[in-house]
Amino acid sequence: MRFLSTRRRHPLAGLVVLLLGLIAVGGLYSAVAPDSATAETTDARKVEAGRQLFLVGCATCHGKNAEGIQTKSGGNYGPSLIGVGAAAVDFQVGTGRMPLANASQQAPRKKPQYTPEEVSELSAYVATLAPGPAIPSEEYTDASGASDEVISEGGEFFRTNCTACHNSVGAGGALPGGRYAPKLTGVSGKHIYEAMVTGPQQMPVFNDAVITPEDKRAVIAYIKTVQAEPTYGGLGGGGLGPVVDGMFTWIIGIGGLVVIATWIAAHGARVKRKESRS
C-alpha cells in the first residue's frame, strides 16, 4: 500500500482515479443496461422477420395485415388474427395445423412446416397486432416432478372439463359434422396449455379465470402421467373402450373356439385295442 500512499499527490493521480471510475461505471453499464437496448432491436428484427414470413405463408388467407378475408357470400375465408396472441400462433403453427393442407372441417395435426425459430418469429409478429394470450412460461407447462396431489387434482379437472370430448385417456373423440377432438398423445405440455388458453377450432377457451395456470399445469401433469404409465392388465385397445373388446370377443374369442370345436368334432374316438390276427 506504500506505493499508493506515496503517489497519491501525483499530478496524474486524479486522472487515474477518473479513468478507473469511468471504466467501472462503463463496465457496469455495459453489463446491465445495454441488455434491453439489444433486446429491443432483436424484437424489432424478429417481428419484421415474422411479418415477412407472414406475408409469404399466411397473408393469402388471413390478409396482408392479418385482418382476415371474407368470402363474397360473407363466409370466413381466413379469420382475423388481430388479438389472437402469440399462444394461438405458437399452437397452430407449432403443431403443424397451420398452414392448412386443404380446406376441410378441421385442421389436422401434422408435421410442422416452420422451424421453431420461424414459429417464434411469426408469434412475435402476431403478438404485436393487439394484446392476446402470450406463450406460457415453462413454469406452467413443464409438469415433470409434479406431486401425486397435483396429479390427482389434475385428473379431477381433466374429467370435469376435458374427457367429454378428448376421452378419459386422451384418445380423442368424435364431434358433429366430421369434426373431432384430437388425440392428446405426444402433444407437448406447452401446446396443451396454449390450446386451453386460446381454444383452437372446436375447443372452448379455458382462460386463467376458469382454470388457473397452476391447475392447467396439474391437468398437463395428469395427462402426461396416465399416458406414460404401462397398460396394466395387458395390451390395451388404445383407450377406445368396449367397442374394441366386443370385436375381439366375436372375432378371436368365438372364432378361435369354433376352430377348436371343429377340430374336436372332426376327430372320432380312438380306442386302444389289442389286435389279434387269425
Binding site: 385428473g155 379431477e156 374429467r159 370435469t160 374427457t163 367429454a164 370430448c165 378428448h166 376421452n167 378419459s168 385417456v169 384418445a171 380423442g172 373423440g173 368424435a174 377432438a181 396416465v226 397398460t231 396394466y232 392388465g233 395387458g234 395390451l235 390395451g236 385397445g237 383407450g239 377406445l240 373402450g241 368396449p242 367397442v243 373388446d245 375381439f248
Partner: peptide
C-alpha cells in the same frame, strides 16, 4: 394378455362428468 375395462383410467363416478367413447 389383453386389458379389459381399465376402471382406473375412467376415474370415480361423478354424475356431472362423462368421457368420450362411453360405450
Amino acid at each position: 394378455t389383453l386389458q379389459l375395462n381399465p376402471v382406473w383410467s375412467y376415474g370415480p363416478y361423478n354424475p356431472s362428468e362423462v368421457t368420450a367413447g362411453s360405450q
